[in-house]
């Protein structure tokens, strides 16, 4: 996991992470302020107390992370190749997009194929149908044997 020492890009990454934490703290705090307008019933602390505590904690941690990052003492970010990761992310997005009209099997086949592609295996015209066939079997088991519902498409309508 240890990477090369150099690279201001890595340091920049740590700074961005710290700033993101502070931003999250801001969102939580803003929501707590919004809750201020809400009436509550009965005694005890209301729905705002914990969000405030968490927002303050996150903000402090964000600042601490920022200090560490600015001093260049943050843990090196692991070197990543985004190309293959994008294939997998694309597969997950593709599944979500296809699910409602192409049905579970085809959409999940695409996920399977694109994940394999991310790991350097293909071709997609072969892996997607393999994934779809596997998913189709799972679909039949889930919907027929367990009476659960999964999104159906043209393939699923066949059974």
């Amino acid at each position: 996991m240890s990477a090369s020492r150099e690279g201001s890009g890595r340091k920049l990454g740590a700074i961005v992470v710290a700033l993101a934490l502070i931003a999250v703290a801001g969102i939580v705090a803003a929501d707590a302020i919004r809750l201020g307008a809400v009436r509550t019933f009965g005694p005890g602390i209301g729905p705002r107390a914990f969000p405030w505590a968490i927002a303050i904690g996150l903000a402090l941690l964000g600042l601490a992370n920022l200090v560490v990052a600015l001093r260049g003492k943050a843990v090196e970010a692991a070197p990543v190749e985004m190309g293959p990761a994008l294939w997998v992310i694309g597969g997950l997005v593709g599944q979500i997009v296809l699910l409602s009209f192409a049905g579970f099997s085809i959409a999940t086949g695409v996920l399977f194929g694109m994940t394999a592609r991310g790991f350097g295996r293909g071709p997609l015209w072969l892996t997607i149908p393999i994934g779809a066939a596997l998913s189709f079997v799972l679909y039949v088991i889930f919907t027929k044997a367990l009476a659960l519902t999964l999104p159906a498409g043209p393939l699923e309508k066949l059974v």
Partner: peptide, 21 residues
Amino acid sequence: RPWLYGGILVFATLGTLGANP
């Protein structure tokens, strides 16, 4: 790995969809 992780993602999304489609 390509098939193992492909399978893991298929099962992970299947489990999620099965519990809440």
